[in-house]
């Protein structure tokens, strides 16, 4: 493996029928990290994932998966949950999980034992011998997730894993992802819900319109925006007001402005010396959502929000 990277991709390019789907995407996923690919629907996230896994080959560019140039060679140590969930409807839950493990080289008997354990521990013990077609959509999705990790892969790739899950199951999935990462497994997932990425990821890639807009640590994305200062004073006006940055605006009795380059201390001194009477002062770090808007633009952010809303309504 090169430099501790579970996935390394450079200049991935893919077009379908002359239409560009992914255009020059670079990704570097450190081993043992939780990595998120963010973007609205149709941004090119799934195509990127499929190229990383070798389901399709890029028209241009290179990718390395767990040190292998041919991703299929890494298949026994990779788990993949596709966006479009699919299971054989007539197979029982235990057999489906064991089969998915067997595809990745796990002996069937061990797969069956692990499947029973996973199902029982997650309140699905009664469904061990039930066919997939008898399960609810959420249950079937959980079973497929178990099939994705039953062989204890070193890298788990989840394409829109939260989609279609209720809040409780979304929480469970977040816990599972954290637990896997805690054991040293690399987890990469795509999502159009920024909150999931913000809660889980150390690094993210933001893709929109097939192009990579940002790749790096979540903190780096947030650091692209200056922290916001909120200030409330007892005195309405005075010489101290000249010390506030030019972009300061007053709403609801609060002044709001970006933290000056010089930091908060010089400003505080001026406010105190000028007798402003500080009643409230807070410095807020921008969230990933704000960073996303700044990086990808308002239009893309609105698209993301719309995707989430449509899904919630569905």
């Amino acid at each position: 493996m090169r430099g501790g990277l579970a996935i390394e991709a450079k200049g991935l390019f893919k077009a379908f029928d002359g239409k560009t789907a992914v255009d020059g995407v670079d990704i570097a996923v450190p081993e043992g990290s939780i990595y998120g690919i963010l973007g609205p629907n149709g941004a090119g996230k799934t195509t990127t994932i499929r190229m990383l896994l070798g389901i399709i080959d890029p028209d241009r560019g290179e990718r390395t998966l767990l040190g292998y140039d041919e991703p299929i060679k890494a298949a026994p140590i990779v788990g993949y949950l596709p966006e479009e969930r699919g299971l054989y409807p007539s197979m029982t839950t235990r057999e489906v999980i064991a089969f998915m493990g067997a595809l990745r080289g796990l002996p069937l008997e061990i797969g069956r034992q692990r499947a029973e354990g996973m199902l029982s521990q997650n309140g699905l013990g009664d469904y061990v011998n039930k066919p997939i077609k008898s399960l609810s959509k959420g249950m079937a999705q959980t079973v497929q997730l178990f099939g994705t990790i039953v062989h204890r892969p070193k890298l788990i790739v989840l394409d829109e894993p939260f989609s279609g899950l209720d809040a409780i199951n979304q929480g469970r999935l977040e816990s599972l992802i954290r637990a896997e990462a805690a054991e040293g497994t690399t987890v990469i997932f795509s999502t159009h819900v920024i909150a999931h990425a913000e809660r889980l990821c150390e690094r993210i890639a933001i893709i929109a319109g097939g192009r990579l807009r940002f790749e790096g640590k979540v903190a780096e994305a947030r650091d692209r925006l200056r922290p916001q200062v909120r200030l409330r004073t007892r005195v309405e006006d005075g010489a101290w007001r000249n010390a506030l940055p030019g972009n300061a605006v007053k709403t609801d009795g609060h002044f709001q402005f970006e933290l000056p380059e010089s930091g908060i201390e010089p400003l505080l001194k001026t406010l105190i010396d000028g007798g402003a009477g500080i009643e409230e002062l807070s410095i807020e770090r921008p969230g990933l959502h704000d960073a996303f808007v700044a990086i990808a633009g308002d239009a893309v952010a609105r698209e993301m929000e719309n995707s989430t809303r449509v899904e919630e309504q569905a």
Partner: peptide
């Protein structure tokens, strides 16, 4: 049933 995606990712 979209199982082909799982198969194509797991085996040649």
């Amino acid at each position: 049933s979209k199982v082909i995606e799982i198969l194509a990712a797991a085996v040649p």
